[in-house]
Structures are given as structure tokens and as C-alpha cells.
Write a protein that binds this DNA or RNA. Structure first.
Length: 394
DNA sequence: CCTGGACCTGC
DNA sequence: CAGGTCCAG
């Protein structure tokens, strides 16, 4: 068992799994044991954990049998193939296209003929797995350095951030990111998570079961563009978002292509945001989430009601008089933060946003949260019922 | 431009 | 109300 685990040196201050994976930028990670996080990334199921100086990781072996319905496979299955990956994979490729890296690197024909009896993870994939994590957590970005710079520019950040180190932006698959955040509108985190899981189990492909829990890949755009999707999602309780998801998927397949979203990484922020906002169900806030969490737009700042309150409370007192968050104010708040924090302002915002989440109020930098807090987290009811006492602060 | 409402569902 | 978006006036 221990043999599956590998590790890389990584300071706690550069990455805190608990804060980074549970602060609402991704809805796909679950704390399966205390301090252990399991989720899907690059077509594989991973479990991660860490100490003060090391990141431990393992993937869960799956026997990927080629799908029976290959005939309609617009996109190849996200299989990781021994021969291809071991030989050709480079760090650079991982960095440029993690969202579809498995697809890029797999010849579907080869996979089909040779993969049936091949365990997905083998020692040949070690470099690949290592690179995938570096890419996903954007480990080339020196977070400690950024924290220092931000602290110099902003006293409020300097104070708050002391107890909230290691919060970084993930580099997610844009497809997963887009459809997840379409689900987020006027909604709460637990329901968003449930909806994302439903998308995966109904329209994704099962990768492997771990401890009795099945894990699925995120569906392709093409799968979500099927005519039946809106009705099905309505029945599954998606409400009006069912239409948004269906229409957005169809819009992308009609006017662009499966991989179009990835190409937005090569555009500047304004252009990418502009194009995203043409999609049904995608306004400024969701577009900024996709820009920041999956398209490398480090200065994108999603301003939701929560961030708006932080801005009014700690940075822009004049906002206290504003009735609602108009487009103009949205732009103004973002610009204010960008000029204060600089190029990585989206990352900065994420630290303050996370620090302000009730969920994290009792954590501290000495280590993992108090035992009391862990118990609470495992029991959502307890957390939510107890919201009375800190309500006013937010 | 800005403002108010409707839109799904569930705790 | 919940980490919004869209549409009309």
C-alpha cells in the first residue's frame, strides 16, 4: 500500500491542500480521510496528502477498457497510455494543455488495441504524473514571494494572510470549470457540488472505484450538447441551469469545437472574457471564474456578493452606499484590486476570499485545523445550523 | 447606463 | 437567502 505513494518536496507555505482544494474553486475534491484528498485530474483518480515539507501523491490504478460505444466518441477517452506517455511526454506540453493532455498524447487507435489489459499507472508514467501535479498546482509560481509582495502593498492583506498561507489558484480543465460555474449561479456550495457530481456520473465516464466510491471523468462538451440533456438535467434538479448547460454546450459545438475553450488560454483576458460572456448562463462573474481558475488570467477577479462585501468593508467604503452590484461597479472593484495587488490580483483575491469563509475561520497556520473543527466539517448540518453567531461578520 | 423581478431548488 | 444571469422598462 505504502508503495503506491510517492512524494515531492513542497513547503506547506507554498501549498495547503485543505485550503486550496476546499475553497470553492473546484468542486471535485473530497477529503476522504483526515488530511487526504481524493479527486480526478487528467483522467486519473488521485489521492493527495502532505506534511510541512512534502507533498505525497498516488494515483489509483484502473483498468481502462475501451468503451463499447466508441463509434460516437468525438473525443478519445482520457486514457493514459504507457508507451506514448513514457516516451513523449515533456513538461512543456503539460504546461500548455493540461486540460486535454491525456487526449493529446494518446493515440486512440493504439489505446483501443493495446490498452485493454494494461493497468493505467505504471512506473513509466511517473514523470507524467509529477508534471501533471506541477501543472495543476502551478508550482512554477513562487507563492511565498507573491505573498510578500502583496503584503508590502496592502496592510490588510499583510494581517489577514498570516494565518492563511498556501492558498493558490489551480489550473483546471476549462470545460469542467465552465460548466461547474454555470451551476454556481444563485446557488449554494453543497448543491453545486451535488450537481457537478451528477453531471459526471450521468455524462462522464467511470474511471475507477476507490473504497466503494466511483469516480468519473468530467463530461465532454459534445456529451452535454446532446438533445436530451436539458430535460434530463431538469429532472435531476438543476432548475433553470439545465437550459444554460445544454445551450452553452450546443453553442460551443455549433460555433466552435470541443477544444475551443482551451484556445482561450492564448488570448488576452479581455478577449477571453468577452467570448465567454456570449455563452448562455455566463455573465461577468462566471466568466471571471473560468478565466482565473482555468485560463491563466491571473488578474481576473470574480466578484460575487461575498467579494463585494469584503471590498466594501475593507477597501472601498463608498460601496456601502451602493444598492447593487452594477456592471460599472463590478469593473471598478476589479480595477481597484488589480492596481493595488498587481498582475496576480486574482490570486490575491482568492486568499482573502478563502480567509473570510466561515469554513476556515478556525484554522490556523500551525497545522491542520483543531479536531473540533474537523468533526464539524464532516457534519454539514452542524456547520450550517451554527451560522448564527458569525452571520453578522459577513 | 441603471433597477427590479423572475428564474429552480433546498436547507 | 444561496458565491448570478437575463430581460424588460
Amino acid at each position: 500500500m505504502a508503495a503506491y505513494w510517492r512524494s515531492m518536496p513542497l513547503k506547506n507555505s507554498e501549498l495547503r491542500l485543505d485550503r486550496t482544494l476546499a475553497c470553492g474553486q473546484s468542486f471535485r475534491w473530497k477529503e476522504t480521510q483526515t488530511g487526504e484528498w481524493t479527486g480526478v485530474l487528467g483522467g486519473l483518480v488521485w489521492t493527495l496528502k502532505q506534511t510541512a515539507t512534502e507533498l505525497f501523491f498516488r494515483t489509483h490504478p484502473s483498468f481502462s477498457v475501451p468503451s463499447v460505444k466508441q463509434e460516437q466518441a468525438v473525443t478519445p477517452e482520457p486514457l493514459i497510455h504507457k508507451g506514448t506517455l513514457g516516451k513523449n511526454f515533456t513538461k512543456k506540453e503539460a504546461h500548455s494543455s493540461v486540460g486535454c493532455v491525456a487526449e493529446d498524447l494518446c493515440d486512440p487507435v493504439t489505446v483501443k488495441s493495446e490498452n485493454a489489459d494494461l493497468a493505467v499507472n505504471s512506473s513509466h508514467n511517473e514523470d507524467y504524473e509529477h508534471s501533471l501535479l506541477e501543472d495543476y498546482f502551478q508550482l512554477h509560481v513562487d507563492l511565498g514571494q507573491l505573498y510578500q509582495t502583496w503584503a508590502q502593498a496592502d496592510l490588510n492583506f499583510a494581517q489577514t494572510s498570516q494565518k492563511f498561507s498556501g492558498i493558490r489558484i489551480l489550473r483546471q480543465d476549462p470545460v469542467e470549470c465552465l460548466f461547474s460555474f454555470i451551476c454556481s449561479s444563485n446557488n449554494n456550495i453543497s448543491r453545486i457540488t451535488a450537481m457537478v457530481n451528477k453531471l459526471c456520473s450521468y455524462y462522464g465516464k467511470k474511471i475507477v472505484e476507490v473504497e466503494g466510491i466511483p469516480y468519473f471523468s468530467f463530461p465532454t462538451v459534445s456529451a452535454l450538447a446532446d438533445d436530451s440533456v436539458e430535460r434530463t438535467l431538469r429532472e435531476l434538479g438543476f432548475g433553470y441551469r439545465a437550459k444554460f448547460i445544454s445551450q452553452t454546450a450546443q453553442y460551443i459545438m455549433t460555433n466552435h469545437s470541443e477544444n475551443w475553450l482551451l484556445s482561450l488560454r492564448d488570448m488576452d483576458y479581455d478577449k477571453a472574457k468577452d467570448l465567454l460572456m456570449k455563452l448562455p448562463g455566463v455573465g461577468g462573474k462566471v466568466a471571471d471564474c473560468v478565466c482565473l481558475f482555468s485560463l491563466d488570467k491571473t488578474g481576473a477577479i470574480p466578484i460575487d456578493t461575498h467579494v463585494w462585501k469584503i471590498a466594501a468593508r475593507d477597501y472601498m467604503p463608498k460601496l456601502r452606499q451602493a444598492k447593487s452590484l452594477t456592471d460599472r461597479l463590478y469593473q471598478e472593484i476589479g480595477d481597484h484590486f488589480r492596481s493595488l495587488w498587481g498582475e496576480y490580483a486574482g490570486w490575491t483575491h482568492s486568499v482573502l476570499f478563502t480567509a473570510d469563509l466561515r469554513h476556515f475561520q478556525e484554522t490556523n497556520d500551525k497545522g491542520l485545523p483543531a479536531k473540533k473543527e474537523i468533526l464539524k466539517r464532516s457534519n454539514k448540518l452542524a456547520v450550517e445550523k451554527d451560522s448564527k453567531c458569525t452571520k453578522k461578520k459577513r
